Simulated assay, not measured.
Amino acid sequence: MSVWLPPAEYVNTIPRATAYACLYFTDTGGRPVQLRATYPTETWQWPGGNMDHGETPWECALRECLEETGIAFEGERKLLGTQFIAHRGEDWPANHIGFVFDGGTLTDDQIAAIVLDPEEHNEVRVHSVREWEVLMTPSNFARLREIDAARRSGTVAYMEV
């Protein structure tokens, strides 16, 4: 005979996860646009961040994009990929799940008008995927490569780290 636990008790028996969401932009030449982080854990990234309580991944991506770039994105909600990062011990005591949405194409004027939050980012760059490889860690570059391929092919990427 199975015993059903109340939801509050059951949740304590299963793995926990935090979540992030971001927008992936390219320029008019199809080259990824990335921001240089001011903290050392991940140098180049897309506008995005961790979800707040009660927030959906889409709401998070829009909020973070506005906070980090000044861009009030109004495009369609299109998922390019998800990323599952397994629990890594004391460094991060939970699984981490990411949602990468398509931010579309930015013109040169839109890129030049980006207003960075200096506490989070200090530079905007545009490079080809191949040029980004030498500037990024292998795992972060793998995510860029998969998301770029998903966008170009019209598919959705699933990644595990």
Rank of each mutant, 00 (worst) to 15 (best):
C65A: 14
C65I: 02
L66F: 13
L66K: 14
L66W: 10
L66G: 03
E67W: 02
E68F: 00
E68L: 03
T69V: 06
T69W: 04
G70Q: 03
I71A: 09
I71F: 11
A72E: 15
A72M: 04
A72C: 08
F73D: 09
F73K: 03
F73H: 15
G75M: 01
G75V: 01
G75I: 00
E76H: 04
E76D: 14
E76Q: 11
R77M: 12
K78A: 11
K78F: 04
K78M: 05
L79E: 11
L79P: 00
L79V: 07
L80T: 10
L80F: 10
L80C: 11
G81T: 06
G81D: 10
G81E: 10
G81M: 08
T82V: 13
T82Q: 15
F84Y: 15
F84N: 13
I85K: 14
I85H: 13
I85D: 14
A86M: 04
A86Q: 11
H87A: 10
H87G: 02
H87W: 06
R88A: 08
R88H: 03
G89T: 04
G89Y: 05
E90S: 07
E90V: 03
E90H: 04
D91Q: 09
D91R: 09
D91V: 03
W92V: 04
W92A: 06
W92I: 03
P93Y: 02
P93K: 06
P93M: 05
P93D: 14
A94W: 06
A94I: 00
A94L: 03
N95V: 01
N95T: 02
N95L: 03
H96K: 12
H96P: 00
H96D: 15
I97S: 09
G98L: 08
G98K: 07
G98Q: 13
G98T: 09
G98E: 15
G98F: 05
G98C: 07
F99N: 13
F99M: 07
V100M: 09
V100P: 00
V100H: 04
V100K: 03
F101M: 12
F101S: 11
F101T: 11
D102N: 13
D102S: 11
D102R: 06
G103H: 11
G103I: 07
G103F: 10
G103S: 11
G104L: 01
G104T: 01
G104Y: 02
T105S: 09
T105C: 08
T105Q: 13
T105M: 10
L106C: 04
L106H: 02
L106F: 05
L106M: 15
L106G: 02
L106T: 00
T107K: 08
T107D: 12
D108Q: 13
D108F: 00
D108M: 00
